[in-house]
Simulated scan of single mutants.
Amino acid sequence: MAAVLIFASILVPIITALVEMIKKTVDLRVNFISVLAFLVGLIIGLAAFPFTDLDSINRLWAGGLAGLAATGLYEVVKQRENKPKGGDE
């Protein structure tokens, strides 16, 4: 399980960048962004067989977790950017 979490943490920034790239090129409803990130995570996790010795089920788990984490990471950064800097939080 530790290998899955390590692999997922490596995939998170990659999936975040890919989802942002897709969002910039395709007009997509906000409701589907987390589903898109999950699916991209599954695809990237499955396609990463030359880079890891995990079996396909563990790569799918890592990709799915990374896709969901990428959505959460983006939302945290987005909310942080909208807050004023300084002590007025």
Rank of each mutant, 00 (worst) to 15 (best):
M1Q: 11
M1C: 08
A2C: 08
V4H: 01
L5Q: 12
I6R: 15
I6Y: 09
I6P: 07
I6W: 11
F7N: 02
S9T: 15
P13H: 00
I14Q: 07
I14F: 13
I14W: 11
I14A: 12
I15E: 07
T16G: 13
T16R: 15
T16C: 14
T16E: 14
A17Q: 03
A17D: 07
A17V: 11
L18G: 13
L18R: 05
V19Y: 06
V19P: 03
V19H: 02
E20P: 03
M21Q: 11
M21D: 06
M21K: 09
I22E: 00
K23L: 10
K23T: 14
K23Y: 06
K24H: 13
T25A: 14
V26S: 05
V26H: 03
D27P: 05
L28S: 07
R29G: 15
R29Q: 10
V30G: 07
N31I: 15
N31Q: 03
F32M: 06
S34T: 14
V35N: 04
A37T: 08
L39I: 15
V40T: 12
V40R: 00
V40C: 08
L42C: 10
I44L: 10
I44A: 05
G45S: 00
G45N: 00
L46D: 06
L46P: 02
L46F: 10
A47L: 11
A48T: 08
P50A: 10
P50D: 09
P50C: 05
F51E: 09
F51P: 05
F51V: 07
F51A: 13
D53I: 02
L54D: 03
L54R: 11
D55T: 02
S56V: 12
S56Y: 08
S56A: 10
S56W: 09
I57S: 13
N58R: 10
R59V: 04
L60C: 11
L60P: 11
W61E: 12
W61G: 12
W61L: 07
A62S: 04
G64M: 01
L65M: 12
L68W: 04
L68C: 05
A69M: 04
A69K: 04
A69E: 01
A70S: 07
A70K: 00
T71Y: 05
G72P: 02
G72T: 10
L73V: 09
L73H: 03
Y74A: 13
Y74T: 10
E75Y: 08
E75H: 07
V76E: 13
V76L: 15
V76S: 12
V77G: 09
V77R: 12
V77E: 15
V77K: 14
K78W: 06
R80N: 12
N82E: 15
K83F: 05
K83S: 05
K83A: 11
K83M: 09
P84I: 03
P84W: 06
G86T: 06
G86Y: 02
G86V: 03
G87D: 06
D88Y: 14
E89H: 06
E89G: 09
E89M: 07
